[in-house]
């Protein structure tokens, strides 16, 4: 799961990672860059995202809901929660979703490395 740099490639599945992958795919299609270079970019992305989220983000979030499915495999928790209500501290109002999937890797393992 973790790349050889010690960071998860989990965030590649978010919008930031997907758009980066798309852009890299286009450049590879144009033969502007080699696929190996694209892989290097993605490993750098894993690191930068993790570091940026750690350093620059201060918001706290709370959420409640009913758990539909839980799974713990290879140190990765996967939850499927229904009727979720998210609340950010400091901000008024909340966001409601009927279904949210949470994919979560261990924070400890990342720190150990």
């Amino acid at each position: 799961m973790a790349a050889n740099t010690g960071f998860y490639d989990l965030y590649r599945h978010g919008s930031l990672g997907l758009t980066l992958t798309d852009a890299l795919d286009e450049l590879i299609g144009d033969e502007s860059i080699a696929p190996q270079l694209a892989m290097k970019v993605l490993t750098q992305f894993d690191r930068v995202v993790a570091e940026t989220l750690q350093e620059k983000v201060k918001q706290r979030l709370t959420f409640k809901g009913s758990l539909d499915t839980y799974r713990f495999c290879d140190e990765v928790w996967t939850f499927l929660i229904r009727n979720v209500t998210f609340k950010m501290d400091g901000n008024q109002g909340s966001v409601v979703a009927d279904k949210v999937k949470i994919v979560s890797c261990s924070a400890k393992r990342n720190d150990d490395k």
Partner: peptide
């Protein structure tokens, strides 16, 4: 912690999150 959340077409980032839910 250190999460990216996508809900209803919008994205949120958080440093810490606590969740409580019943199965």
């Amino acid at each position: 912690k250190d999460g990216v959340l996508t809900v209803n077409g919008k994205e949120y980032v958080f440093h810490k999150a606590t969740g409580e839910y019943e199965w």
